[in-house]
Design a protein around this nucleic acid. Structure first.
Length: 116
DNA sequence: CCCGTGACCGACT
DNA sequence: CAGTCGGCCACGG
């Protein structure tokens, strides 16, 4: 399965067959975040049944092999901020803003409407 | 198997 | 309300 041919969730599974179960779960969860919404590292962790693995979730997303098929930029910190080095964080922030999500003071304004 | 390294989190000053 | 601190956990060396 070639990266360029990944179009569906099934394709994502296939493409990641050799990755760990944990990473696969993280990428699949992120893959399902709808356009115009965001999710936190912690909630992704809960969603995949590892409620305390938020740091590991962040590590996995940092190595996202399916960008931009897996929209890792829609995953933010619990306070709406963007982690990582400034340059990359700013890039994800603008990407999120371009999808219509309200931002103030470099953070997403967390509301239940925008939260996935 | 131990150790350092993070795109984290919640509680507590 | 901004920092700090301890706990967390997958991964690679």
């Amino acid at each position: 399965m070639r990266r360029e041919d990944v179009k569906t969730e099934h394709d994502v599974r296939e493409f990641l067959k050799d990755w760990s179960e944990f990473e696969r779960a993280v990428y699949l969860a992120a893959y399902n975040i709808p356009h115009g919404r965001v999710c936190t590292y912690g909630s992704i962790a809960k969603r995949i049944g590892r409620p305390r693995a938020s740091r590991a979730v962040a590590n996995a997303l940092h190595n996202n092999p399916l960008y931009p098929i897996v929209p890792c930029w829609r995953v933010v910190k619990a306070d709406g901020g963007f982690g990582g080095d400034q340059k990359a964080a700013a890039g994800r922030r603008e990407h999120v803003r371009s999808e219509g999500i309200p931002i103030a003071n470099d953070k997403v304004i967390m509301s239940k409407e925008v939260l996935y």
